[in-house]
């Protein structure tokens, strides 16, 4: 997929539009990724989810189970889908700069 251009810097994306290199994530990158996911603006609620995902990823190297994400952020699944239309495993993880969850999901 074409690179994501953020402040003049080219950030490589994989075919699914996820970051090739998760180290290149920052808040500006998140905002640019959000636009690719039909999320025009990142609100405080979005950031609550993004920051939770990033903390978990830093600790464990993967996304948390969806139930845990909901419980710990206080956002039920419906809210997560409202915030990130393609869902917790795709939109939310992409914007938060995580690897794409794969398998039977």
């Amino acid at each position: 997929m074409a690179d994501l251009i953020v402040n003049g810097q080219a950030i490589p994306l994989d075919e699914d539009g996820f970051l090739e290199d998760t180290e290149l994530w920052n808040e500006e990158v998140a905002k640019a990724l959000a636009l690719t996911e039909d999320v025009p603006e990142l609100t405080e609620e979005h950031w609550k989810v993004i920051n939770y995902l990033r903390d978990y990823f830093a600790k464990f190297g993967v996304a948390p189970m969806v139930r845990k994400l909901c419980k710990d952020t206080g956002c039920d699944l419906k809210t997560i889908y409202e915030l990130f239309p393609s869902g917790p495993a795709k939109g939310a993880c992409k914007i938060a700069g995580l690897l794409k969850p794969t398998g039977c999901v």
């Binding site: 464990f60 190297g61 993967v62 948390p64 189970m65 139930r67 845990k68 419980k71 690897l99 969850p101 794969t102 398998g103 039977c104 999901v105």
Partner: peptide, 16 residues
């Protein structure tokens, strides 16, 4: 298949 490392599995199990 998901590539979940053991510490994350154990964390998830404790939560469940």
């Amino acid at each position: 298949n998901m590539g979940t490392p053991l510490p994350a599995i154990l964390d998830g199990i404790e939560f469940l």
